[in-house]
Design a protein around this nucleic acid. Sequence first.
RNA 1: GCCGAAGUGGCGGAAUUGGCAGACGCAGGGGACUCAAAAUCCCCCGGUCGCAAGGCCUUGCGGGUUCGAGUCCCGCCUUCGGCACCA
Length: 819
Amino acid sequence: MVYDPHDTEARVQEKWRGANLFKMEEKPGVPKYYCLEMFMYPSGRIHMGHVRNYTIGDVVARFHRMRGENVLHPMGFDAFGLPAENAAIKGQAHPKEWTDSNIAAMKVQLDRMGLMYDWGREVRTCEPEYYRWNQWFFLKMFERSLAYKAKRRVNWCPGCKTVLANEQVEDGTCWRCHSAVELKEMEQWFLRISDYSNELLGGLASLPEWPAEVVAMQRNWIGRSEGAYVDFAVDGRPEKIKVFTTRIDTIYGATCVVLAPEHPMASALASAAQKSEVESFKAAMRGQSTHDRATSKEKKGVFTGSFAVNPFSKERIPVYLANFVLMEYGTGAIMSVPAHDQRDFEFARQYGLPVRVVVQPGGLTVEGMKEASPLDGLLEESGPFTGMNNREAMKVMAAKAAAEGFGEAAVTFRLKDWGISRQRYWGTPIPVVNCESCGTVPVPEKELPVLLPYDVPLTGKGESPLARVAGFVNAKCPKCGGPAKRETDTMDTFVDSSWYFLRYTSPKEKGRAFSQEAASYWAPIDFYIGGIEHATMHLIYFRFFTMVLRDLGLIPFGEPARRLMCQGMVIKDGAKMSKSLGNIVDPDAMIERYGADAVRLNILFLSPPWDQLDWKESGAEGAARFLNRVYDVVEEALPYLGGPVTPPRDGEGLALRRKTHQTVGRVTAELAERLKLNTAIAALMELCNAQQAFLSGFRQTPEERFALKESVEALVTMLSPFAPHLCDELWEKLGHEGFLVLGPWPSFDAKIATEDEVTLAVQVNGKLRGQITVARGLSDQEVLAAAKENPKVKAHIEGKAIVKELVVKERIVNLVVKG
RNA sequence: GCCGAAGUGGCGGAAUUGGCAGACGCAGGGGACUCAAAAUCCCCCGGUCGCAAGGCCUUGCGGGUUCGAGUCCCGCCUUCGGCACCA
């Protein structure tokens, strides 16, 4: 009998719908479980990456529900963003219609997969009821100076015609369209994520169930470094140059001070003689992005004509501007110590500046020096500090600087504030007006939402589209009532995704972003699944938002997700699936061919969820074959299940019971803890194989009937999170009513799972020589005696002296012999 | 350069965290059923020597610890990912 998945899947899905099975009903007195997959961008079609991501979540969510827990497993849409707008520019449809119709199409696809989503909780970020709360959070942050406007050099993507956050620049290109990013001086809104650098970094230690690589990437990205600020006086001028250094111990070796070309003091420090050179250098640097400068590596600079005074040695050293000093990091100024910093070394060689060794690791001389020495050692030529260990000197010298008022120990971070202004239409309007007399004025809360107008000319030409909508732009100043103009930039869509997980807990809530009661019941997320590409974007932003929301008193926790899993990429024939390579696998076509259950099973069976996965069609055939075998086993067993049953105490019946309970133990452990879903499926396959073998020798006794019934029902139940359609169908065949997802999960009996005989391997000198099967619970002496009796072992120990005897309970015996 | 992950049969991958390497599946070979095919079922399937019993080798490479190492330690090689003129 061949099982037809299409017929079954359609019928079973209809029953689920009829029973409103996926609506979450909270029961009192049971644990909660919030299982969340990163919501989707409504591009129009789901791909294999979605299939994998959502199947993992679905299996885990179903499992927890079967165990009787309150499970929140929602899905929604990250519905603002560029593709919708670009489609409109191409004249396809209004972004709103484009988005809505894509969502409708994708929901059909998701339902076909059999995914257990409570659509009653769906969230769409482009709805005013959602984005008004983006605006509200913005106002709250504005009140606390966590949102501010500043003129900065920002990343401009000429392809997307908008500004990008630092996190959205990859290798000097736009994360979305990969155009080379340019630097532009623009007035922008920023969120002060840097205020949370310390907590974002420290909090990582409280996330043991996050993947090590994500934690490492975030740590790297936040980039803490310990050092000191030191003020250098400028000879003959009142102002001081503040530098940041991690090597204050090398300060006696500083032979110049170098400023970034954009440093605010750069022009002022130019002497009359150097003025034109300084200005032309600044002009040359202006067009170059940090990325361009970094990749050229060549050190370029110009002397300003001014001199700085080393506050320790009082030495007078020249002040330069150079391309390798970044305005964005530290203070935008450094002290240059050529002997102990490679960049400074190269710069010194280029411009003929002196090189002086001040930390002696042993045998280091300036003559013949090919590169800087970063090593530790004892200070030399360092005034009163000479002879001191350099690590010690760092502390002492920073303390001296602080005591004398020309510096202090300091920690700096690489993490910069989050620029959220986007010069595009399809996003959340920033709730601010610019009044001629009052300046920047936030829109009062009661006027929210600032609605995104529907009719907006979209040309893709570059400035904010909203600026062309007079009805939107012209507003009254909330403060003075005078004429004002609205902010026409919209927010980065990563703002939307920074708190959506909280909205799911009370998606219909009015008057607040979310119900605080619901949020503190459900959140933090127990299990969060998504792609690793968000490691330093979404996954850092939503941690930041969670901390801010906690500080606003809205939630009682600061970390949004307890456990994170990043599913591996789905590739085909060793290459990433892409349209240009023509190796896209269409989920719909796969479901058409093998059924949703087989597709789900295959994508989970092929490798552990977090590993890269090479989609193999033959695997889907294998999965379908297995489901067929399960179907056959049930069909074959069915006629035998009616008669009287008695628990078996020995023989094949007991052996099958053992296998059944061992499988329950293994599968439960995988689903509850380890989540190596491929091995859970392997265990189920083994159980099915055992049942097949059992049936071929089935003797129709009440004992064997008991074992068979128990085993088959356990298999169908445990397979149901993976292949929910087939299993619900089989459950009905087996004479049961209702749905497997409502539980219960099979109970595990350790006593039955444990064999009363154990097979041990016997080694002689660490080499496997034989096996013995003995009763459980024998003493080591008895086990050793049995081992020595084994004929194969005997042959290897005969005539030799046994030097050592080892027994590892229920595993192995090792006899060490000599001679 | 720094940080992280990984390297196991023809392939995807297992291995209870130091205890029988290769579970489970895919591909392949042989057989049964069939007029035939599909489907299904049974057997074989890391390498090597051997008729066989069995021996030897084998988890990227080289050392080490241990009765015992895919797993731990030291030193390399390779691949992938992230960051990178960050002072």
